[in-house]
């Protein structure tokens, strides 16, 4: 189930020719990119954001832009001292798997066709509702625009040939480098009737983190959306009671965001001091 990522009309984008190993496109042009002085490379830094933005097309409305999630420099996670490894100039752009082309394989084509048909009957164009279809590792992901999310969920649940009647919840992911689309809400839907599964993904920006609630369609998403609000700060508009669920009510911040520190204290073990996990070297 491999696919070749496309980038339609994104001439200035570094196009990964192989999705393998995530490293994909090593962007070498443009001279030296600033070295991120990051304590933890998983955290967004100014320099990394700047480097990442160079790979994003100027047109923010571009339909099939790359989902750049990180830009890494060097190797071995060494940020202090001189460039002893000789890899200091290495710059790697990490992008998530891009949109797939037909045939998607398995039942995926049928699901997409049926969804397009049902949405069309309701007066919504498939292309307007779904940004892109990604088939990766034998799993189908539909990137849905937030204004059509509820319509898509309703179509997936109610149509007898689709019948994704079991909503398995919502989980958030924070991609600080995916500019303007930093926060992703990911919905996992199962069809008990047809023994199928589909994943919906909605991307919104940190500046406007609003997604319509799916609780009306899948009442079981109530707590999952509260958890995603709690951990990521995605506001689910229309949710019956969007209160924090895991953290205390007066907790500041959203702990699962990448710029939220993990915290921790050094631990002594047999005379040696082990630093807290978020200050240890990261090799990513």
């Amino acid at each position: 189930m491999s696919e070749t990522p496309r980038s339609e009309g994104t001439a200035d984008a570094a196009v990964p020719t192989e999705q393998k190993d995530a490293a994909a496109a090593a962007k070498v042009g443009g001279g030296v990119v600033g070295t991120p002085a990051a304590d933890t490379p998983q955290t967004a830094t100014e320099a990394a954001l700047e480097a990442g933005s160079q790979n994003i097309p100027a047109n923010a409305q571009q339909r099939t832009r790359l989902e750049v999630i990180d830009v890494r420099t060097g190797m071995f996670g060494a940020t202090q001292g001189g460039d002893t490894s000789g890899y200091g100039g290495l710059v790697r752009t990490i992008a998530m798997p891009g949109p797939s082309e037909r045939p998607y394989g398995g039942y995926f084509d049928e699901v997409v066709d049926l969804l397009a048909e049902v949405l069309g009957e309701g007066g919504t164009a498939f292309d307007a509702a779904v940004e892109k279809v990604v088939v990766d590792r034998e799993e189908l992901t539909l990137f849905v625009r937030r204004e059509h999310l509820v319509a898509v969920c309703r179509a997936l649940r109610d149509d007898p040939d689709l019948r994704f009647e079991l909503g398995l919840g919502v989980s958030g992911v924070h991609y600080p480098h995916d500019e303007g689309r930093e926060l992703h809400a990911v919905y996992h839907l199962y069809s008990v009737t047809h023994s199928r599964r589909v994943r919906l993904e909605v991307a919104v920006g940190e500046a406007d983190p609003h997604v319509p609630t799916t609780v009306d369609v899948y009442p079981g998403h109530d707590w999952h959306e509260r958890e995603t609000w709690d951990f990521f700060g995605i506001v689910f508009d229309g949710h019956p009671g969007l209160a924090r669920i895991q953290m205390p009510d007066d907790w500041p911040g959203h702990p699962q965001r990448k710029d939220y520190p993990l915290g921790g204290i050094p631990v002594e073990y047999k005379g040696a001091h082990i630093p807290p996990p978020d200050t240890r070297r990261s090799y990513s």
Binding site: D70, S171, V173, S282, Y283
Partner: peptide, 13 residues
């Protein structure tokens, strides 16, 4: 995964 040596996100339903 973000292609690194650590999970980028692990969520348990």
């Amino acid at each position: 995964s973000d292609g690194g040596t650590r999970p980028y996100r692990a969520h348990f339903r």
